[in-house]
Amino acid sequence: MAATRVDEGLAARLEEIRREKGETIAVAEVAEVVESLLTTMTGDLTADDVQLYKELEGLARYIHAARAEISSINPGEIQSDLLPTAADELDAIVEATEKATNQIMDAAEVLEEVSGDVAPEVADKLSDATTRIYEACTFQDITGQRITKVVRTLKQIEERVDGLVRAFHPAGDDAAAAQPAAEGRAKAAGDTPSDEDLLNGPQSAEDAMKQDDIDALLADFD
């Protein structure tokens, strides 16, 4: 068994990978190293060698299966599409609650103003009611802070997924990794979007159509 010479080659390859990639290396390269190790095991094998061979073969199969499974999750879509969309939706919630809170307070301030024109006992009731409205409006601050925390967590998840994408998709394969699944679905179904593709929820202020545009679009069908 000419193991020593080949082992030296493997050791050199491992050292090269360690030097180039540090502690983070692509799974494909791990599989490559394990397969190289298997090819070194030639000649007369001892019982220990056979056991080691089996273990390594099992490890190689496990790595291939894990790689296929994680690739099928499509981390590229999570990174390029789902996480940014979730963050945008949360930002839109903060914006909407702020707008609603200001509208509620506009109304409450009007009530306070007119309280000067009514009987004192009515004015007191109006004052109590507006105080409760102001107190209730503090929800917007708390909600905003909680959502900011969630967005921060999403950004951390995005960084982890980014690492996963790099580990499972070698350089040059990024475009394929980032291709959104929705795009694939639309292509598969042809030009007509499926019912599922039509379910996008509320749009941001920039993307949403104005009512006049919708009316004009409907008029085109007449």
């Binding site: 307070m105 107190e135 917007q140």
Partner: peptide, 17 residues
């Protein structure tokens, strides 16, 4: 002092009351 303008408005209104 608050970075949420709605909170500034709430506190201002409560102080006015």
């Amino acid at each position: 002092v608050d970075d949420y303008k709605t909170m500034l408005r709430i506190i201002r209104n409560l102080l006015r009351q």
